[in-house]
Amino acid sequence: MPSDRASKEESRTVVECHSVVKSFGSVHVLRSVDLEVRESEVLCILGPSGAGKSTLLRCINHLEGIDGGWIKVTDQIIGYELRGNKLHELSERAVRRQRGLCGMVFQHFNLFPHFTALQNVMLGPVEILKQPRGEVEARSRLLLDRVGLASKVSVYPSQLSGGQQQRVAIARALAMNPRVLLFDEPTSALDPEVVGEVLRVMLELAEEGRTMIVVTHEVGFAREAADRVAFMFDGRITEIGPARAVLEKPSEARTAEFLSHVLV
């Protein structure tokens, strides 16, 4: 599948990280991360916990600020504005507008429990983007249908299984028409028997050419859906390359060791 995709080399860059540094107090979570993700590309980020994978995603949509370097989504520097040779923090309003570029799917779904599945999907477009309700509702129903939940439209999250909740969360992210989808360990909190239904939806999104960055432990998914795979260790991207090549013949010893543990 990944090889079927139209010539990647010509497509434009959607996400670009340049020497991104981030620390929490004295803990250096990201130590100079460089990354480029092109349009319709699927990048999977693998690595041990604490390597900074989730933090990187959270920096990309500015849920966390950064301490050095810069991150661009499309042509916008996220969270900051270049004036002279300094990056000034943007106003809350400007940050909000930029967040629309990224759709985020969380490990613990974070659906709003006091709204139904449909309301969860509609809330953003209607109340934040101020799009007309009728139009949004039709589109949201279609999205829920696409993730296989047409029958669960008026059900509250607590009545859905983990896999169903995560699929609603994906529909919620899609409803905002983001340029890139960020998945933060989307299947780690799921029961084993429902992991497949979520991965299937993600695979479909990959096939239709969505730009996706997926932090995951699912090596099988990475092999099948990813164009490229990146390994993170200790706040750095230590290896990055075509999925098959990296997963089957890693050039770094640490990558090989990590894979041998995961694949057992």
Partner: peptide, 21 residues
């Protein structure tokens, strides 16, 4: 849970909206 606020912010919501809704 803080995840609720993060989910709302990631949709581009303001702090005031997130608190209220």
């Amino acid at each position: 849970p803080p995840g609720q606020t993060e989910a709302a912010l990631s949709l581009g919501a303001s702090h005031a909206w997130t608190t209220r809704r």
